[in-house]
Design a protein around this nucleic acid. Structure first.
Lengths: 151, 151
DNA sequence: CTCAATGCAAATCATTTGCACACCC
DNA sequence: GGGTGTGCAAATGATTTGCATTGAG
């Protein structure tokens, strides 16, 4: 019961290779390294965190290459990009992961995830009402943790 | 039937004055000018557009002051700030306007607005499920206009 | 008078770009 | 070999900051 989803690095790498070949991009070691490090992340990350991670792992990969490669990974849907805060973009790996939306705990910048089918319904209504095709959406709740009642 | 809502500049100005006094901020002419120009806007705007508008109206107000004042106006809920695109922030006046969410038409960066009560329901579910208080939310649909069927 | 607010210019920070060199194809 | 990809450093663009001056209270 339930679909077995395979998003191990090996599978994801194959997907990336397909994309690179289909679009005439070179298969450089840097690109694989970046993909691997991204898929080793548990949650969300920004470019600077990724850059530091690379440095610690002794990979001499420049920021320019990180930005370049993120563009490729976005195009083949292996990562997703968010603009939660106005400063730096936040990314997360996204291959075969269940689509979800986010809750930002403003106290500590913690990021939670949730799925709610009603968003899909709203989306359908909007498409009909405005005669548009919705390509994607972003729903973020900004919240505070409820204080424990120590009555 | 229905509540009469007053968001003329005069009323909004009173609200701003209350806020300034309550927080010990000075009532400078620049602040009133900025509020007035913002409320003369029909839709959304960014800081640069506002700056140019000021210049054309012969108001010698610096960008620094614009940024400062936006902060005050955000605090007293007279404007709302969005991060639709990752570059520059987008603002809109918000006093006693019906809360709404946005559709971004990616072809031409047009911004549409909609209200859907189901978001409020989702919000309540999330608050219960995660034991948090949601302060605000942001829902954006990125869409393309549907091509006319000329069959 | 005093200190917060302003205007200007310089500083910052994420991201982009230009260019010489490296290496995938 | 040829041209894309890379690293580096410089450029960009939005926003912030430092500081001398102004003016609201």
């Amino acid at each position: 019961m339930g679909v077995v989803i395979d998003n191990t690095y090996e599978t994801v790498r194959k997907h990336f290779i397909q994309y690179l070949e289909a679009n005439g991009h070179r298969k450089t070691p840097e690109r694989y390294t970046i993909l691997k490090e991204i898929y080793a992340y548990d949650g969300h990350f920004d470019i600077d965190s990724l850059y530091v991670k690379m440095r610690k792992a002794k990979h001499a990969i420049s920021r320019a290459t990180l930005y370049n490669t993120m563009e490729l990974l976005l195009n083949c849907n292996l990562v997703t990009k968010h603009a939660f805060n106005e400063n730096s973009a936040i990314y997360e790996k996204s291959f075969h992961f269940k689509q979800h939306d986010h809750i930002l705990i403003t106290d500590n910048n913690e990021i939670l995830e949730f799925c709610d089918p009603r968003i899909e319904e709203i989306k359908k209504s909007i498409e009909t009402m405005f005669d548009v095709d919705i390509i994607e959406h972003s729903l973020v709740f900004y919240a505070k943790k409820k204080l424990k009642e120590n009555k």
